[in-house]
Design a protein around this nucleic acid. Structure first.
Length: 937
RNA sequence: GCCUCGGUGGCGGAAUUGGUAGACGCGCUGGAUUCAAAAUCCAGUUCUUUCGGGAGUGUGGGUUCGAUUCCCACCCGAGGUACCA
């Protein structure tokens, strides 16, 4: 009987689905284990071979943990709100929910073919009202909370109001807007309702504020930095400007410190934690308020180097800084206007990336030095970003390289404040022991002493203070999109009010067009029934808005990260109609034990979800402060794109070897048209696209050879490889093994099917231990010692390697094991059964089938994982660690029958000769050159 | 630009703590089996060589008795860079 993977895989997939083999129960005496994947965005291109990489790895963990006696929760779902579905809707007029459902169905089909042990009864879709009802509910919880700095946690706003009524806000220490007015209880009570609400907005964790966006008037939409190239929109090439918009934001800044500290408790890779640390970007320094010449305002700057304050020779403002307008002198007005216009289209990223060209303009105004009173010219420069610090810097050319370059370029003065340091070539940026000079009362002090001293002086003169700053900005939460969660708020004039909880979900309205309205409102501005009748508590037509009882609803939707910031909790109790997640389910599953996903989410999803989880923790809705203690990043599987080369301006395509010295443009061709030797199938190519039909192909050696490049897998690059093809040809078990065999799970790697026959042959070879010449060949004989040794070596290696997630070496280990057993002709049941259990997390269909053929009725899933027995290894040698100067250097492998004294003697002998004896060592000793002093242990 | 990761044979990769570099698989070469092919099995396969050896883990330095592994500088590639998910 041959290994008929098609039949086997279908059979067991159906069996598992019908019997709900992988259903997880919220009550169990077993210890729980929660294995989570980052759920996919269901794109139109379908699932490609890159998606399953992480899913296969986490499925191995889930199955391994079931074998190890855990009650495993391993769910899957879809992050189904997103821009691509909306773009498609704009182009075709088809409702995004239709496309999304179609895509999800296709994803599900593909996922089902790979034998994942998901509990599909817990599926979630972020775009379903039953789900986003609770996303909206969480939004309202954040709206109804503020961050109390004394308690160092989020607290309901009702408690804040109580305090205002009793004592005003003078003593309230909260993370709030810096423009919050100060009032006492009396004044608070005197405010009218609107004023009270406006003040509360300064405190709420979700709040409205004017924030700057990239606005494209021609497209009528806001653009991401990503969508802007060279100052114009990627689509259409229209000009882009900055525009202030009233938008929802979330006070993630309040959690900066806790998000930072919490990282220490997480078992995530150091690199990922480092990325989050840098993103949060905590720095310590000082705020300094500079007086302005001829103006009453002060210019506040934040600096990490207050010790260099005597080296300030000019100030630089971000072009968007609010003072620019006020202080620019008439003589400079023209130059400043022009400069700002020139910068307007550039994204922050472009402004930072371009360090070669230095640009800036003088405002004509001066600030006054807080200690010397000297006038300091105020400039504008694009390298200062409005979003970081105060959007203004004090420039110290001798202590900061960018300031130095700017000063050199514009011939501004440079004061060297570092004693004995030559700064003719560049700034001195180290915070070393160098003493300050030309620095007034700071002369002779080093960095630390000067920093402490200057802060004391600033505070006593009331012109500055020590300050901690974070790079992390509050998260803008409004999107001018259709395909997202509606924000459950309505407006009485300027004041937002939450929809009553019992009326959630606020479902997405039907619209005729998914584009912004003609007058620039977001797509929901097209909705007809999109107003809130406060008296009758129901949704009504926008025609009835009267601002007395019927009010307009919010037109923005939530960003993509909203739904994905809490989905892991919903899986615990996905069907709950009354709560976001039931407390019983929550107290059983608690948190995620193993989270698998891409590192591209390091500073997006993985930070936002931690933030929401901490808020929910503060408000008492979840039992843990971090939801995923262990996180593993799978690498990306990259596509191996193929190119043909068109001679510029012709229809002639040159083979890769002929393009040298020619002016050619590379054009993507579908990778399925190319064989393993990079030869293009010309017939197929001509049928593939019109352009190629009449084209002339110049060959080399009778072949057209394509160029290759490794890129992200994407539909537009024609390099997508679909897992279905692999499943058809080799089966899911082979695909699973091969994806693991490709390389370390955390590493990016290009997809290449060339080696897949190797793992497929391994399965066939394993199968042949059960069947030889169509005969069932499993024996009930006791295995010999050699076979048992191989088995237990394999158990040890596999257990260790699963533990350190080295799945690629697991596959190698299996191959070695089966090769050796084949050589030994070992088909003993007591060797093969444990091997099947070992392999079943990797190749579940294969193992389940043979397990049942061996006469078992229950699923292999219920079998305990084999346990390593060292006594079966028949050890003839033992490893002795040997040290040099007390440090472990290497091991000697010696026969077991040698006594310790004999070993010592050998080692002492080797110590003298070992450098030269590489070839002369007795066979029972493996010695590495080096000096040996004594034996440890 | 900035943050993070990576670079080892013809290819994917192994080397777990600084100790015999190249496990395992693909490909390739030769052989067995076969009328033949497929399938399967066996042997070989880093490069170079005057067959003694020599070189070798992106490049250049450094630490060390010893470096793929640690440090410094650089080159190349990937991901992120706040409205893609």
């Amino acid at each position: 009987m041959d290994y008929d993977f098609r039949k086997i895989e279908k059979k067991w997939q159906d069996h598992w689905a019908v019997h709900k083999t992988f259903k997880a129960h919220n009550r169990s005496d077993l210890p729980k284990y929660y294995v989570l994947d980052m759920f996919p965005y269901p794109s139109g291109a379908g699932l490609h071979v890159g998606h399953p990489l992480g899913y296969i790895a986490s499925d191995i963990i889930a199955r391994y943990k079931r074998h190890s006696g855990f009650n495993v929760l391993h769910p899957q779902g879809y992050d189904s709100f997103g821009l691509p579905a909306e773009q498609y809707a704009i182009q075709t007029g088809q409702h995004p929910s239709k496309t999304t459902t179609a895509n999800i169905n296709r994803y599900r089909q593909q996922l089902d073919r790979m034998g994942f042990s998901f509990d599909w009864d817990r599926e979630v879709r972020t775009s379903e009202p039953e789900y986003y009802r609770w996303t909206q509910w969480i939004f309202l919880k954040l709206f109804d909370a503020y961050y109390d700095l004394d308690a160092d946690k989020a607290v309901p706003v009702s408690q804040l109001i109580d305090r205002f009524e009793k004592e005003g806000n003078l003593k309230v220490k909260a993370h709030c807007d810096k423009d919050t007015p100060v009032f006492d209880a009396h004044q608070w009570k005197a405010f009218d309702g609107d004023e009270k609400q406006k003040i509360l907005l300064f405190y709420r964790l979700t709040y409205l504020s004017d924030t700057e966006v990239n606005w494209c008037p021609a497209l009528g939409t806001v653009l991401a930095n990503d969508e802007i190239v060279n100052g114009v929109s990627e689509r259409g090439g229209h000009p882009v400007t900055k525009k202030k918009m009233r938008q929802w934001s979330m006070r993630i800044g309040a959690y900066a410190n806790r998000l930072l500290k919490g990282l220490d408790s997480l078992d995530w890779t150091d690199s990922l934690k480092e990325m989050q640390r840098n993103w949060i970007g905590k720095s310590e320094g000082a705020s300094i308020y500079f007086d302005l010449e001829h103006h009453s305002e002060k210019l506040e700057v934040y600096t990490t180097r207050p010790d260099t304050v005597f080296g300030v020779t000019y100030m630089t403002l971000a072009p968007e800084h609010e003072l620019v307008e006020k202080i620019t002198t008439p003589e400079q007005q023209n130059a400043v206007d022009q400069y700002i216009k020139q910068i307007a289209g550039k994204s922050d990223r472009e402004r930072q990336a371009d360090v070669k060209s230095i640009s800036g303009v003088f405002t004509g105004a001066h600030a006054l030095h807080p200690f010397t009173g000297a006038p300091i010219p105020i400039w504008i420069g694009e390298y200062v970003l409005a979003g970081y610090g105060t959007g203004a810097v004090m420039a110290v050319p001798s202590g900061d390289q960018r300031d130095f370059d700017f000063a050199t370029h514009f011939k501004l003065p440079i004061i060297n404040i570092f004693e004995g340091i030559d700064i003719s070539e560049g700034a001195y940026t180290e915070k070393g022991n160098v003493k300050l000079t030309q620095s007034g009362f700071l002369d002779g002090l080093d960095f630390k002493a000067a920093r402490d001293r200057v802060i004391v002086e600033l505070e006593s003169k009331n012109c500055g203070k020590g300050a901690v700053n974070f790079r992390l900005r509050d998260a803008i939460f409004s999107r001018q999109r259709y395909w997202g969660e509606p924000i459950p708020m309505y407006f009485k004039g300027e004041i937002p009010f939450p929809l009553p909880e019992k009326h959630l979900p606020l479902a997405l309205p039907e619209v005729e067009k998914y584009l912004p309205t003609e007058d620039g409102k977001p797509p929901l501005g097209n909705a007809k029934v999109w107003a809130w009748d406060e008296t009758h508590e129901k949704l009504v037509s926008v025609d009835r808005i009267d601002q007395k009882t019927v009010f307009p609803l919010e037109l923005n939707t939530m960003p993509g990260w909203a739904g994905s910031s809490w989905y892991f909790n919903r899986y615990m109790d996905a069907d709950n109609q009354n709560e976001w997640v039931g407390s019983e389910a929550l107290s059983y599953w608690k948190d995620v034990d193993f989270y698998m996903g891409g590192s591209e989410h390091a500073t997006g999803h993985l930070l936002y979800s931690r933030f929401w989880h901490k808020v929910l923790f503060d408000l008492g809705y979840v039992p843990t402060e971090e939801y995923a203690k262990k996180l593993v990043n799978q690498g990306m599987i990259l596509g191996n794109s193929a190119f043909v080369y068109r001679k510029k301006g012709t229809r002639t395509f040159l083979s890769k070897g002929l393009i040298v010295g020619q002016s050619v443009e590379p054009i993507h061709v579908d990778v399925s048209l190319v064989n393993a030797y990079d030869e293009l199938d010309l017939e197929a190519a001509k049928n593939w696209q019109k352009d190629f039909k009449q084209a002339e192909f110049v060959l080399e050696g009778g072949k057209y050879i394509v160029g290759r490049e490794v890129e992200k897998m994407s539909k537009s690059k024609y390099n997508v490889v679909n897992p279905d093809e692999i499943c058809d040809t080799y089966g899911a078990d082979t695909l699973r093994l091969y994806e693991m065999f490709l390389g370390p799970i955390e590493q990016d790697k290009p997809w290449n099917t060339a080696g897949i026959t190797g793992v497929h042959n391994f399965l066939k070879k394993f199968w042949r231990l059960f069947y030889q010449q169509d005969q069932w060949s499993v024996t009930e004989n006791e295995p010999n010692a050699e076979s048992l040794k191989i088995l237990h070596q394999t158990i040890k290696k596999i257990t260790d390697d699963i533990g350190r997630l080295s799945f690629n070496t697991c596959v190698s280990t299996f191959m070695i094991c089966i090769n050796e057993l084949t050589t030994l002709k070992c088909s003993s049941r007591s060797v093969l059964e444990p091997l099947l259990i070992l392999l079943s997390p990797f190749a579940p269909h294969f193992c389940e089938e043979l397990w049942h053929q061996l006469g078992h009725n229950k699923s292999i899933e219920l079998e305990p994982f084999p346990i390593f027995d060292p006594s079966k290894l028949m050890e003839k040698t033992k490893e002795y660690p040997v040290s040099f100067n007390g440090k472990m250097r290497f091991t000697l492998e010696l026969s077991l029958d040698l006594g310790v004294d004999q070993i010592k003697e050998i080692v002492m002998q080797e110590q003298r000769t070992v450098d030269h004896m590489k070839g002369d060592v007795p066979k029972n000793i493996i010695v590495v050159p080096g000096k040996i002093i004594n034996i440890v242990s």
